[in-house]
Simulated scan of single mutants.
Amino acid sequence: MTSIQTILAATDFSEDADRAAHRAALLAAGHGARLRLLHVVQTDALEELRTRLGLAADVKDRLSEDAGRRLAAIAEKLQKASNVQAECVVRSGRVRDEILAEADHADLLVVGAHGTSRTREALLGTVADRMLYLGRRPILVVRNDPVKDYAKVLVPVDFSVHSIAALQFARRLAPDAQLHVFHAHSDRSEGTLFLADAPREAIEKHRSASRNAALENVTGLVGKALPGDPRVTWSVDDGDAKFLISEEAKRQGADVIVMGKHGHSLLSELFLGSSTHATVARAHCDVAVVPQDPRI
């Protein structure tokens, strides 16, 4: 199984981004991977602000130099904490676009759960939230302080090829961790039986058969994605994935959730990623979102 060789940690110098950088360093140390630290000087409105406020013409250069110094300070801390030498990269432009461009040369992008502007993200969504849908590489959204390697991983599945990619990446991300595979089972035909006034015994029998079929599907999926892996367990529960996944993560004591996504188009961003979005928002732990082809 291919290992993670290059990790990119994007930072805006916030507390959350610092937490993400430390997780990235911990992962880099465990995988023997190359670590790159990236900061993007946002130039979208810089020229307008420079004109309006009378800022110096070289303001972008000075911001880039300051960012370089701050990245170097972070790299020094990470080297002392994890014995990992990080490469510092400063880019200028539109933050999301520059991060995604750099991420195309990495096996994993690591970002903080929040940024420096909590008000803006409440109205428009975070840069991280946008990148979850548009990125072509696995993205790890870090929520908690990285005190140890990942030990328990929850992998929600829906029996698609995206689930296979998530399972295989979960094992790459945490080679020594216990994986728990979880399926939130929802049978729409059960509602039809209620409307048809079917006997309660018939509904219960149908529910049991449908749940058993789902459990068999999970068993088959695990056998296909991770054959012979003894550190994998699985379960099925009835209900809406948007609510059940984060609750199951708590119940399992998971320190990261790894889940697949169905695309990186605007359509998927608007309509397809409801359970992914809900999980990132609700989860008490870190969340990794994996495209169908992680390319590692």
Rank of each mutant, 00 (worst) to 15 (best):
R188P: 10
Q42F: 12
D197K: 14
R188H: 09
D229W: 04
I164F: 04
A174L: 03
V90T: 07
V256D: 07
T279Y: 03
T6Q: 14
A9T: 03
S160I: 15
D293N: 08
A20N: 06
M259D: 05
F169H: 02
H185K: 04
L193W: 09
L63E: 01
D18V: 04
N217E: 10
R295K: 12
L78K: 11
H183A: 04
L244Y: 11
F182L: 04
L195F: 04
K261W: 01
A28D: 01
L123D: 09
S189F: 13
K242Q: 12
V258Y: 00
A75K: 02
L38V: 06
G54V: 06
G112F: 01
A81C: 10
V111T: 10
R70T: 06
A165I: 10
T6L: 13
R52A: 15
M259F: 07
A184T: 11
L55Y: 04
I139M: 13
L27P: 06
L221Y: 07
I164C: 03
E201R: 10
A29C: 11
I7M: 06
A198H: 00
D237K: 12
C285T: 15
I296G: 15
R295Y: 15
R188A: 11
A21H: 12
E269A: 14
A278H: 07
R231W: 13
T11S: 09
S235G: 03
A33K: 01
N144M: 13
D238V: 10
N212E: 12
F271E: 06
L173K: 11
H180V: 15
D176E: 15
I203D: 01
A151F: 07
V280F: 10
G30M: 11
R251Y: 01
G54C: 12
Q85E: 13
A103R: 07
L46F: 08
K205C: 08
H114L: 05
L134A: 08
G260W: 08
A225R: 02
R50L: 15
L193Y: 15
A166F: 05
A174D: 00
G68D: 01
Y133K: 09
A198N: 02
K224T: 13
T51H: 12
E190R: 06
H39W: 04
C88G: 04
R251L: 08
D16G: 05
A81Y: 05
E98W: 05
T6R: 14
H262W: 04
H183I: 06
A196E: 03
A184K: 11
A198V: 02
R50Q: 14
T119C: 07
L100T: 12
I74L: 01
K242Y: 10
G135Y: 02
H183F: 04
L132S: 06
G191N: 14
G112N: 04
S274Q: 14
T233P: 05
T192E: 14
S268V: 10
V127L: 14
G273T: 06
A29R: 15
Q292V: 14
A101V: 08
Q85F: 09
